[in-house]
């Protein structure tokens, strides 16, 4: 991993490009930049992971950056800058140079769920970014303890009262269960934990009745027979859990997932963005990267910027609508 140098890139690139820039100047618009951009990238790229090391976002970033180094022809230096579900790191990305040398990972929940929980006038929006590559679609699965009396989703929602664990306020797990129990009219209490692992631990210890978590958090326990999956909150059945019906099949149209993507600041030029898009497209074909997704139960989500953007804004509207329909206040409301 390379350190991130604060080279006087502007100066260097400017000097190198000067003769070409004079020619290119008649094109107007972007002036000398184009010439320098043609051979982008000429140095290492900084990649911000706006989450703690060791989590799903961190691991995915490492895997995809490793695969993207070869097609880019440059190394990618990764640094974790956690805080506020990614807002701290992404705000910094937005405020920095849009030269393509700074990228970051972003998650769907920040754009689609966080606004329902936290009222932040300065929140980053998807329009602040250019989506370089969409990566994964990770389903939320509803699990109960193996010794639990609930064998199906019908059993569960018919329970007189339940406690459900989640990875925290404003997570997809919380939203999915709140919507499910809201639609079903089940009396259920939300118990947010400080992350997914403590919630799964509490479920293993039967402190709580049910958890909705990512496959990465729950699959090892499902495979060990310690937890039982009852439903997945995706549109279609999950490739890793063919036997678990979707909530929609069971009559509760709750579709909540987490999606992750690589983003650059929105002002990044088309030339540079194009080079990055191509490199990451190639990275997604890398066998090691694909093996990583398989090992971590991550489904692919590989669409272009326009489609991804449409999906995110639709999801944000849908969740807001769902929450309003069921009359929920996630967290403290906003």
């Amino acid at each position: 991993m390379n350190p991130r140098p604060f080279t006087r890139r502007g100066l260097l690139a400017g000097a190198a490009a000067a003769p070409v820039a004079a020619l290119a100047a008649c094109n107007g618009v972007q002036g000398g930049a184009d010439a320098a951009e043609d051979d982008f990238p000429t140095r290492a790229i900084d990649f911000t992971v706006p989450f703690d090391a060791g989590g799903s976002s961190d691991l995915l970033s490492r895997a995809v950056c490793l695969a993207a180094e070869e097609p880019l022809g440059q190394s990618i230096a990764l640094a974790n800058k956690p805080g506020a579900n990614g807002a701290v790191g992404l705000k910094e990305l937005v405020s920095g140079d849009a030269d393509g040398y700074t990228l970051a990972l972003a998650v769907k929940s920040l754009f689609a769920i966080t606004p329902l929980v936290v009222d932040d006038p300065d929140a980053v929006a998807i329009d602040d970014f250019r989506i370089i590559a969409t990566l994964t679609n990770e389903a939320y699965v509803l699990v109960v303890h193996a010794d639990s009396p609930y064998q199906s989703l019908e059993d569960l929602v018919a329970a007189p009262s339940l406690n459900y664990g989640t990875a925290g306020v404003g997570t997809g797990g919380q939203l999915s269960l709140a919507l499910l129990f809201g639609l079903a009219g089940t009396e259920a209490t939300d118990v947010p934990f400080d992350g997914g692992a403590p919630a799964v631990t509490a479920l293993l210890g039967q402190e709580i009745d049910v958890v909705s978590g990512s496959l990465a958090e729950t699959m090892p326990q499902i495979e060990a027979g310690a937890l039982r999956p009852l439903t997945v909150f995706s549109e279609e059945r999950n490739v890793f859990l063919q036997d678990a019906p979707t909530a929609t099949e069971a009559g509760y149209p709750v579709v909540v997932d987490q999606r992750r993507m690589v983003v650059a600041p929105s002002e990044v030029s088309d030339t540079v963005a194009g080079a990055l898009v191509l490199a990451f497209e190639e990275a997604r074909q890398d066998p090691d990267y694909q093996a990583f997704l398989q090992d971590n139960y991550m489904d692919v989500w590989e669409v272009d910027d326009v489609e991804a953007r449409a999906h995110l804004s639709e999801a944000a509207e849908l969740y807001a609508q769902n929450v309003a329909d069921v009359g929920l206040a996630l967290g403290d409301g906003s």
């Binding site: 506020a84 929980v117 925290g168 306020v169 118990v191 967290g331 403290d332």
Partner: peptide, 9 residues
């Protein structure tokens, strides 16, 4: 920080 259960700042 954010309230651990409710997310209130």
């Amino acid at each position: 920080g954010l309230d651990p259960l409710l997310g209130t700042p």
